[in-house]
Write a protein that binds this DNA or RNA. Structure first.
Length: 807
DNA sequence: GAGTTTGAAACT
DNA sequence: CAGTTTCAAACTC
């Protein structure tokens, strides 16, 4: 995961580099320098001022063809941008509140492979110099508009009519430099073609050298926010990703930097773009001082921004820091995607000022989650796409070319003309982000398959753009709203609630126990709804379907049907359902505290050994109160502690970190060890031995592996034996069933006996016919009987012999 | 299986 | 936020 081209790294502050290194640790493949597939020119071209220039790195390899004066550098590399379809304009506007002036610059992207509407790589160059002006608002807007659209402010389009318009300056007044990669591959197909875009994974990194720390990043979908991109085409709707840079409260100066990336799609069906709806906003975790450790940027809704996201791990106070623990390390929380696809979390590092903001992008979006109801098998494409848009504004399409191949992927749904944007933010702590979906439309039906993003322990934001055909609305309720459908992409939480506000106790809906479903509670009094653990719902679904009544008119059936088997704590649904949960033994907590694993996992106690258990439907009211109490103490109490990262368990992270003192984090007392993950910088453990290079840990791992191998071997042997026995029984069943005994006797069937008797009778008749004496007749009959027996025995022996060979 | 140890959760 | 208490699981014998 390369956020910034290696060259740029050299000019970055140490803090940034450190952070990046950290980030790379989490992403093994990223440890190598930025993918060099795209020849990346050198950093030398990036002007190094007294301060680190603001850099928006869209592609790893970039050569800012323009300008050295720029303090703000926009670097676009790689395939992500390539996803920009033909005839798109990119408008970048940077303004600073410090100055009233608005600088405008125009860059034209030229493509080497122009005409091919379908594919081909095109090289885009930034040919137009920026016109430095005084900063205004520090706002960067990258606007992509339809190819055929005419942008008043943009220069002539090239063959493919891709334009890059850059306006504005950095807060320091330096011009913005937008560097596009030499090889800017286009999407396989233009929008109109509807083909798949095959962008290479790209990373997006924004480095801001501004003196003011960045506080927030916002992704906003707003047509109004398009600056200078208004083209006649604009029947198109736009999706805008807005990154806002705000100064910390403590800092003087209202410096605000926004990065808005918008892309207008050619949607003929589009009637109006007037809709200005901030659909998704992103948060940026920032630090007040450049010296401080880098923070993680969380992209989410602005309204959902909480202090939590701003908090960083305080490692400095730790007595003992494990090797993995570095104060500057940015921990990327991982999420357990349960999609069939391999979860890929791609951290995007955005460095603003001297801070590095890490945005983790995951491709975990399952096709279904990607949102489109289109039946076509959605394939997650390795193209970084940042799409933010209202559900009701399917036409909006935003692509942020983020990307470094290994990390960033763009989600492309075949057959869908819309890009799906997934923004995942890695945070050092438990940053919890919720992305609220603000839609201007009235909710009618819930479309579970197109969840708005919901993040979990690993902050993740994914906002699939819903195609017009399939758009059903997502309830535009604020977090506090009583009625909303929240589906966490992987974390297991899906709530279905009535539109009518719940009286009295109303827990934080987004943080209820995993899989919790609100259903009409039989005995919950006026509460009206019972909080049902997903597992319980699953059980009920086996027999009696839980009635998830909703007066709101939501169509909940589909959601309900899918919610029951949501992953839990990083475990796949299969794991959660098949894994027999250990019965609890609570005695004093009434199983209504987080001490109780059942309760903590959002499950009802079942076959437990607990005493005075209230964790059941009979005490739903108490249970609901307890849930609320837990949520009051910790809003994310029921969220999975272990998030899954990109690949493998090693990528998983404990959202909170352990606090072990004596166990060395090598016993199950340690939550990290128990989860089979290594401790990270967010842990506060002392004498930690649960790190990568720990010999103790390796020893344990080897032992565990050996034990596991033995178990597997035993299991395999047992399986084989069982199979053989079963096969043998199958083979011998006919004989056994017919004869019911040892092989020779199994041949004495009724038919054989009758035949034998016939032979004996025939011999008797023959003797009678020849008037033989009775003695002789008896003798002959006995001899015939002997012959029959010999034949039977011979046949049996032969059959046994054959069986032995076959078996 | 009883007793001890441990660290998260809860509490102050 | 830090220190203490409570709690249940993990561990030991």
């Amino acid at each position: 995961m390369d956020v910034v081209s290696p060259d740029l790294n050299s000019i970055l502050p140490d803090e940034i580099m450190d952070t990046e290194a950290m980030a790379m640790e989490e992403d093994p493949p990223a440890e190598t320098p930025a993918p060099s597939s795209h020849s990346a020119p050198e950093p030398a071209q990036v002007p190094m001022e007294t301060e680190v220039p603001e850099i928006v790195s869209l592609c790893p390899a970039t050569t800012p063809t323009q300008k050295t004066e720029a303090l703000t550098t926009l670097t676009a590399t790689d395939s992500t941008l390539c996803s920009i379809t033909t005839g798109t304009q990119l408008v970048v506007t940077s303004s600073s509140s410090a100055g009233p002036k608005m600088a405008t610059g125009t860059a034209t992207l030229t493509t080497t492979q122009p005409s091919s509407p379908v594919v081909g790589q095109s090289v885009a160059k930034l040919s137009a110099p920026f016109t430095p002006t005084s900063p205004a608002n520090h706002q960067l807007i990258i606007n992509k508009v339809a190819a055929d659209g005419k942008s008043p402010s943009t220069a002539a389009l090239k063959q493919e009519r891709q334009k890059l318009l850059v306006t504005g300056l950095s807060k320091l007044g330096q011009p913005i430099v937008l560097a596009l990669p030499n090889t800017w591959s286009k999407p396989a197909t233009s929008q109109g073609t509807g083909g798949d875009v095959k962008p290479q994974p790209a990373q997006f990194k924004v480095v801001s050298a501004g003196a003011k720390p960045v506080i927030g990043v916002q992704a906003v979908s707003s047509a109004n926010q398009l600056l200078g991109s208004s083209s006649p085409l604009q029947a198109q709707q736009l999706k805008t990703v807005q990154i806002t840079k705000k100064p910390p409260v403590s800092t003087a100066g209202p410096m605000i930097t926004k990065l808005i990336i918008t892309k207008a799609l050619n949607n003929k069906g589009l009637t109006s773009q007037a809709t200005v709806t901030p659909v998704v906003t992103g948060r940026v975790l920032t630090q007040s001082t450049p010296v401080t450790p880098p923070r993680t940027i969380t992209i989410g809704e602005t309204i959902s921004t909480t202090p939590q996201s701003l908090s960083s791990s305080s490692n400095s106070s730790k007595v003992a820091i494990s090797p993995l623990k570095s104060p500057s390390k940015v921990t990327v929380a991982a999420q357990p995607p349960n999609s069939p696809q391999k979860p890929m979390a791609v951290p995007l590092n955005v460095a603003l000022g001297q801070q590095i903001l890490t945005v983790q992008q995951t491709t975990s979006t399952s096709p279904a989650k990607a949102g489109s109801s289109q039946s076509t098998a959605q394939t997650v494409k390795p193209v970084q796409t940042v799409a933010v848009g209202g559900v009701n504004t399917p036409q909006f399409k935003t692509i942020i070319p983020l990307a470094t191949p290994p990390n960033v992927q763009q989600i492309q749904v075949p057959g869908s003309r819309f890009h799906y944007v997934r923004l995942v933010t890695a945070t050092t702590g438990n940053t919890v982000q919720t992305a609220n979906t603000s839609t201007t439309t009235n909710p009618t039906t819930i479309q579970p398959a197109k969840p708005m993003v919901m993040n979990t322990a690993a902050v993740r934001m994914s906002v699939p753009l819903v195609s017009a055909q399939t758009v059903k609305q997502v309830v535009p309720k604020p977090m506090t709203s009583s009625a909303q459908v929240v589906s966490s992409s992987q974390t297991q939480q899906r709530l279905i609630m009535p539109a009518a506000p719940l009286p009295q106790i109303q827990p934080n809906l987004t943080n209820l126990p995993p899989g919790t479903v609100l259903a009409p509670a039989a005995g919950s009094g006026n509460m009206g709804y019972a909080v049902l653990p997903a597992q319980y719902v699953t059980q009920l679904q086996q027999s009696t379907f839980v009635t998830l009544a909703s007066s709101s008119g939501f169509s909940t059936s589909s959601s309900i049907q899918t919610q029951a088997r949501l992953p839990l704590n990083g475990l796949s649904p299969v794991e959660t359902t098949s894994r027999p949960r250990k019965p609890c033994n609570c005695t004093k907590s009434q199983c209504l505290k987080l001490y109780c694993d059942c309760f903590a996992n959002g499950e009802f106690c079942n076959n437990c050994n607990c005493v005075n258990c209230f964790n059941n439907l009979d005490h739903e009211s108490d249970r609901l109160k307890a849930i609320k109490a837990c949520l009051d103490r910790n809003p994310v109490a029921f969220k999975p502690k272990i998030g899954k990262g990109k690949e493998g368990e090693s990528e998983r992270r404990h959202s909170k970190g352990c606090n072990c003192k004596k166990s060395g984090c090598l016993k199950n007392y340690c939550e990290c060890y128990e989860a089979k993950i290594m401790c990270s910088s967010i842990c506060k453990c002392v004498g930690c031995k649960n790190f990568e290079e720990s010999p103790e840990r390796k020893t344990l791992m080897h032992l565990a592996d050996a034990a596991e191998v033995r178990v597997q071997q035993q299991t395999a042997a047992k399986t084989k034996l069982s199979s053989q026995i079963s096969d043998l029984l199958t083979r011998t069943t006919p004989a056994i069933s017919s004869g019911g005994g040892k092989l020779p006797y199994t041949f004495v069937t009724k038919e054989v006996a009758e035949a034998t008797c016939d032979c004996l009778l025939e011999q008797a008749r023959k003797s009678e016919r020849y008037n033989q004496p009775q003695v002789m007749a008896e003798r002959l009959i006995l001899e015939e009987f002997g012959h029959c027996l010999r034949r039977i025995i011979s046949s049996a022996a032969k059959a046994k012999s054959d069986c032995s060979i076959n078996c």
